[in-house]
Each structure stands twice: as structure tokens, then as C-alpha cells.
Design a protein around this nucleic acid. Structure first.
Lengths: 199, 199
DNA sequence: GTTTTCATAGTGCAGATGCACGATAACAGA
DNA sequence: TCTGTTATCGTGCATCTGCACTATGAAAAC
């Protein structure tokens, strides 16, 4: 066996280059040559690791989901240990909002993919939508808080979770579009959380 | 002067063909040839009315904003006459959510353009962000309702408006992504409105 | 030291796309 | 009737894209 390379690691590196290209010029700018140049390798090498372009796009999508989930579990995980539902809810929402350059990049890529997918023109990654996951997680915490009477039990947990989750989704686009700063977005999130949880 | 044609009308027809192409195959499928075929004219004629493809895309974008605004003013206008702030708020939000195939298409095109714009990095070319307008309109109505004590005056009108508007924005992506049905979205909107306005 | 297998690079190709150039039919005004 | 402007069409072309085929260096296995 000659020089062995970790293929999975290589693919992740290429995916990173793809993220940068996609964030700069959108999915239409994601060409084999552009990604290769961004990664500093030859186009053939990209094809070596991804037999078809579609494979590359799918892998990059899955990778992005993976990274997002990692970020979310990291942020939510700490809060979960505390057992404070309010902190968990905030962590969920904070994990969705782009706060630094990196998360902003991933969010932009996500939207680029989403746009390409919605219009069914590009590849449609076998995408598990992220929104339902968020809604479920939030609903669970709200229900839990309701049992402890830290949230008004008369409220509809699913509806509240949906309202929070979709608000966060809207804030993501608001931040990326420049209509909201990250600070304003967090202020809004905190406002709604304070409204939901009893003093 | 020979046969004169209404160029603006011609461009609108071409834009309609573009919308149909985008609905079927996505924005990547929007090529000069595809649009021309869809419109039943030659590709050269498309170029005759739009010197460059980018001009066509820009025109289609402006046309879409125009149609959206028409829809919104129509829906909100009726409610405004009634003087019922709750109805106006609902009309605002209903005007944003895609409810039929046509509005769904327009929303998809809007997101596609938004994604391309966000990734382009630079500030919006000519595009007025829609979200701030929505927030202002909602805040105005909520303030009005607060003066009539139909909304709790202790609430922050701007925050409430922001929460509603961003939720609506998130619902748009939720509907387009299949995470929400139009009915579920409206249910959520009504839930939040019922929460905001006093019984 | 030879051989084999893997990682990387170069090149060519068919198809599509946007655009430029030229041609022609139709119709208003002289 | 003629004439010039306008709307429409056909064609060719440079470019880009994804992909296939081939070549080559290098290192592990023998």
C-alpha cells in the first residue's frame, strides 16, 4: 500500500473550500474548477474524491448539517446539564443565529442551498429540514417547564415552540440581509423568552 | 414609424415566462433559450428587450416586488378601512405568507434572489429590504391598538412587531421547505395574534 | 530493488450558455 | 408607391462546465 490519505478528511477540506466559494458567489458559483482553485488542488483531485459534482454538493450539505448540529449540541449540552429549561431554550435559539463570521458563513451557505433546493433546480440534498428538529427540541423544554409551572401551563407548547423557532429562522435571514444586527436579534429572542417564562 | 409594441408590456410577458421556468426548473434553469421557448418567441427577441441576461433578471426581480406590493396593499387596504388593527395585522402577515401556487412561486424566486444577493457580499443593489417595512407597519398598528387598550400597553410594540414579522419570514421559508403547511402557518399566526390582542 | 497500488496532475471533448452579427418581414409616413 | 424604421428571426462563436481518459510520482509491500 502506497501513501494513504484520509479520504474523509480530504472531503471535509474540499467541503470547506466549497463553503467559501458558495458564501462568496452562491451555489451557481460552485464549479469543480472554482472549488479546486479555492482548495489549492487540481480539479481532477476533486473528481477523484467526488465521482460526480452532485456527490460533492451532497457531501457538503451533510457536512454543514453536521457542523450545525455539533455547534447546537455543544451550546445546548451545557445548558441541558443545568436543568434550566429557560437556558436550554435560549441555547437552542442562540445556536441557530449567526453570531460570528464562521456561523454567518455556514448560514449563508445554508440559505444558498435552500434557495437552490426550493427552486428544484439544483441538486436536492436529501435534506432533513432543520426547523422541525428545532421545534421539537423547544417544545420538549417548554412542556418540561410547564410541568414545573415555570411556563404557564395554559399555553400551547407546540405553538410556542413553533413561534420561537420560526422567529429564529426569520432572524437568520434578517441578520444575513442586514435588516437585523446580531445584537438586535438576541434582544428580540430574550424579549420573547422573558415573555414566555414566568418571572 | 412601423409596428409599435408596448415594450414594458412585452417585458412583463417575458418576466411571466421567466417565473414559470423558474417554478419548473429553478433559477439555474432560467436561460435565455428556456425563457424564450416558454414565452413562445425567439431567443433574440428576449435579447432585444433585455440587452443582457442580468437586465432580465433585475427586471423580473422588480416586477416580483411590484406584484408583491400590489398583493399586500390590496389585502391590507381593505383591512385598513375597517379600522380594526387586529385585522390589519393579520392582513400584513397573510400578505407575506405564500398561500397558493402563484405566491409560492414568487416567494421562491424572492428567496433565490435573496440568496444570490446575500452571497454577493456587497450591499443590496437596488433592493429595499422588505422586512423593515413589515416591522414598521405592524408596529404602527400595535401602537394604535395599545392606545385603544386593545393590546396590553405594557408590551413593547416594536419588539412585538419584530417578533411577528420575523416569525412570518421564518414561516415563509418553513412553507417553502415543506416544514410547514400554509394552514399550519396561518394557525400559528392566528395563535400569536390571539395572544397579542386582548379578548 | 522491484512491483504494485494509490494520490495527484494534464488534456481533450461534447454540450450548453450568453452574446454579437447579419438578415428579413411588416408597417407608418413621404 | 416608395422608404426608412422597427420587430422578429437564424446563425455562428468564444467561453465555461462537467466529465473521461491518460500519465506520472511516490511510497508501501514483497
Amino acid at each position: 500500500m502506497p501513501k494513504r490519505v484520509d479520504h474523509q478528511q480530504r472531503r471535509r477540506e474540499i467541503a470547506e473550500a466549497l463553503f467559501r466559494v458558495a458564501a462568496r458567489g452562491g451555489v451557481p458559483a460552485v464549479t469543480l474548477r472554482a472549488v479546486a482553485a479555492e482548495a489549492g488542488i487540481s480539479m481532477n483531485l476533486v473528481q477523484y474524491y467526488f465521482p460526480a459534482k452532485d456527490d460533492m454538493l451532497r457531501f457538503a450539505w451533510r457536512r454543514m448539517v453536521e457542523l450545525s448540529v455539533e455547534r447546537a449540541t455543544a451550546e445546548v449540552g451545557r445548558a441541558l446539564e443545568s436543568g434550566d429549561e429557560r437556558a436550554v431554550v435560549r441555547a437552542y435559539l442562540a445556536a441557530v443565529l449567526p453570531s460570528d463570521e464562521r456561523t454567518r458563513l455556514l448560514a449563508a451557505v445554508q440559505i444558498a442551498y435552500f434557495a437552490a433546493d426550493v427552486t428544484r433546480g439544483g441538486p436536492h440534498p436529501d435534506e432533513e429540514a432543520l426547523l422541525p428538529h428545532l421545534v421539537r427540541g423547544l417544545a420538549e423544554q417548554i412542556s418540561l417547564a410547564q410541568r414545573g409551572n415555570r411556563v404557564n401551563p395554559a399555553l400551547d407548547a407546540d405553538m410556542e415552540a413553533g413561534a420561537l423557532a420560526t422567529m429564529a429562522a426569520g432572524l437568520v435571514t434578517g441578520i444575513l440581509g442586514g435588516a437585523y444586527t446580531a445584537e438586535a436579534a438576541f434582544a428580540l429572542v430574550d424579549y420573547r423568552i422573558a415573555q414566555l417564562f414566568r418571572p
